[in-house]
Nucleic acid binder design. Structure first.
Lengths: 202, 202
DNA sequence: GAAATAAAATGACCATAGTCATTTATGACC
DNA sequence: GGTCATAAATGACTATGGTCATTTTATTTC
């Protein structure tokens, strides 16, 4: 608890001014000194908070992640299919926002690199959380399937990736969500729901 | 065709010496000057071939890609399921090799970034090529399914991602392939083959 | 409230990524 | 084989990322 607030404040300052400058001139063109000048601190201080300039980008990713976690547990009460749809929707929105920030900020190559990193990490989290959600729906009896939880979450994650990949350049959120809904319906009717029917017959 | 060979030679030289040095000391610790000294060329020359130091890593990714393309069309004669299994196997081997190189070469954070980039790009290619393979199997009648090609390739790609993600740290190739085979069998029997049976009955 | 301790900020300093005007090598054409 | 045009190589130079020994600021203890 030692001087925690001061530290937090300084870090937040750096992040805030950095993002603002990145939006104006792009990541590459902004020097560390510009950032620290904007904050009214010495250059060296920056490196007490971020080991390398690049790490401030990873920090952005981390903030994004925290939002992701929130989304994944936001719809705990709803039916499984609804939960999934709501999560898809929120994720697309979040993703679009993040991608827009990166587009403003970064030059093509590094942007792709960072975004891949984010997506990759998100995919892991998403799939894991989806697994937990499915498992709990199975446990409380609201959802049944002969499919292993891992397989279902893998397929559902696949749908999301598929859509994110295909629509990555011009981010039309509505279109993406529509496509996801279609895909989900097909999968749901074709496999998951069908499996439920089978299970009921037994 | 103008002096192409000379250019190719210089570039190949740079790449070769760079990789060798990266393996010895790691990407970060190797300076551009070291690389050019090893090649017996001037520092400036490096930047005639790679706009930034970092781009030499992306070049590695590109080489890797070329191998991927080759793999994806290597088993054109075989049955669809065999093709997929063979491709899975080769991809895991290729992936392990690449991941090992990166592990030797790069420090954790940037490595993850670059690897994500590679995986992401590969996934797109893989899924697209898989689509083409499935489509052609459908066309020549050796494979039938009520499922849309996109859906199948999405699911099959999902399996691969799933395995790559879960086994990414300790790369046990045999284990990864075994898992993939199991998953493929379940999916194949459960969905794809079943659909074929239905189609045959009609 | 002075001394002791530890956290945080500082900025002079260095190493090197990347630039660019100039030079050198290569081949084409007569 | 001399002239011209273009590709490729050069290396002095600059800007900036990153280090680190030192100083300043905050907190605790008596």
């Amino acid at each position: 608890m030692y001087r925690e607030n001061r530290k937090k404040q300084t870090k937040a300052d750096i992040v805030q001014h950095a993002i603002s400058l990145f939006k104006q001139k792009g990541y590459e063109k902004v020097t560390v000194e510009e950032i620290t000048n904007a904050c009214g601190i010495a250059k060296g201080t920056f490196f007490n908070y971020f080991p390398k300039k690049e790490y401030i980008l990873l920090h952005l990713t981390d903030s994004y992640m925290e939002l992701l976690d929130h989304i994944l547990h936001k719809y705990d009460g709803a039916s499984l299919k609804d939960q999934i749809l709501f999560i898809y929707r929120d994720l697309i929105t979040l993703y679009a926002k993040y991608a827009d920030l990166l587009r403003l900020t970064l030059e093509e190559t590094i942007r792709f690199s960072i975004r891949s990193h984010t997506e990759q990490t998100n995919i892991m989290r998403f799939q894991k959380s989806l697994g937990a959600i499915i498992e709990s729906a199975k446990n409380n009896g609201s959802f049944q399937s002969q499919w292993k939880t891992d397989q279902i979450s893998s397929i559902l994650t696949g749908l999301l990736i598929n859509v994110l990949i295909h629509y990555s350049s011009p981010l039309d959120k509505a279109q993406m969500l529509e496509e996801l809904k279609n895909q989900l319906n097909i999968v749901w009717e074709g496999i998951i729901h069908e499996s439920m029917e089978e299970n009921r017959k037994k």
